[in-house]
Design a protein around this nucleic acid. Structure first.
Lengths: 195, 195
DNA sequence: TGACAAAGCGACACTAGTGACGCATAATAA
DNA sequence: TTATTATGCGTCACTAGTGTCGCTTTGTCA
């Protein structure tokens, strides 16, 4: 039942993801997505009625996947430091390449006052990302790898730093020192021993 | 010589400022500005050729004014702690009212990848704001009021925190604790004694 | 006060995008 | 295979915005 449609929607989301990462949220139109997917206007509207709907679906899939990856690793007793390293390296990639960052589109979406006043789909993303980090931090504390910090406030530090660097790195045309410094600061905050 | 035009441009900037603060950058059109100012399309285009041009003029005037205010106070030997207090209280206002924040529009403008790739007008804003803070911090250190921190990195902490909280406060519908906490953290960082 | 420039008007042609429709075609279950 | 439903197409009418142009009105200087 409806296999074809699922596949098409998958393709739409993949292509739209690329567009959002390159151009930001507002800049992407249904027409753009038509062109990249090869679908016609009618064909696309059959599946999604707006760019926002596509965007929110991607956003939530994005953070859900991240959460389940972290969850799985915790269950497999992968060391917290290792999970942290992986998460941060993804962050680092995006910080270094602000010209191709889906998170930047999320940031733009958040900061547009005209958007999502009482939409809870986007706050869900925040909650998911928050709980991912809090779980990881609590886990790291319980295994003795991390310092006994407050998970919530450290999450905010990470979130804020990330936001700031993203903006900064676009401005300063990718001075790679700053992102590295920030990531080191986060590690210092969490990890007990850093040589 | 051209007094009328200067006045009109002033009005345009004032009204546009309100619109940007309410709706963000992308959402404001030349039409909107026409309606609010009472000017016709032709009349408006006589003075400005795009919303971006208006926006950048406001942005730069905004940070220039802030800088000159701080400069003047330093020359008058106003205590650094007092100047800091004033700056932070303005920040706090905007953090608490993300629905009416011009800085949020700046943030949106920064985070839109399609905008200002090699425009240096917006990096000028960053530079001005950076030098304002660095001057204030250096001054505070020289008077012995502030801890001997690194002005540049503290500026970045402030900038990043500000960014993050702005985003956060829209999401969480103004939980006023977080902004206050962040401001306290900044003060702790700088001021020698906090009761 | 008259000349000239500056400021303002509103209509116009244009562009880019939306979303809906009826029809065509492909997939799938009977 | 056939009936049926899901998918996809392309056109159409519509909207919102842009930027320009020629004309009128208002200011300002000599």
């Amino acid at each position: 039942m409806s296999l074809k449609g699922d596949k098409t929607r998958q393709i739409i989301r993949e292509k739209a993801y690329q567009l959002f990462a390159q151009k930001g949220f507002k800049e992407v139109t249904m027409k753009d997505i038509c062109e990249l997917t090869g679908l016609s206007r009618g064909g696309l509207y059959r599946h999604y009625e707006s760019t926002e709907q596509i965007f929110l679906e991607i956003v939530n899939a994005f953070s859900d996947r991240q959460k389940s990856e972290v969850d799985t690793k915790i269950k497999q007793h992968v060391p917290a430091a290792e999970i942290l390293e992986e998460l941060l390296s993804k962050y680092a990639d995006e910080m270094m390449n602000p010209e191709n960052s889906f998170s930047l589109a999320i940031c733009e979406y958040y900061s547009n006052p005209a958007v999502s006043k009482e939409d809870n789909s986007i706050t869900r993303q925040y909650q998911t990302s928050k709980s991912t980090w809090e779980e990881l931090i609590s886990y790291g504390i319980s295994t003795g790898e991390f310092n006994p910090v407050n998970p919530e406030s450290v999450f905010h530090v990470i979130l804020f730093a990330y936001q700031g660097v993203r903006m900064y790195s676009r401005l300063m045309k990718m001075d790679s020192e700053i992102p590295t410094q920030i990531i080191e600061e986060i590690k210092k905050l969490l990890l007990k021993e850093i040589s």
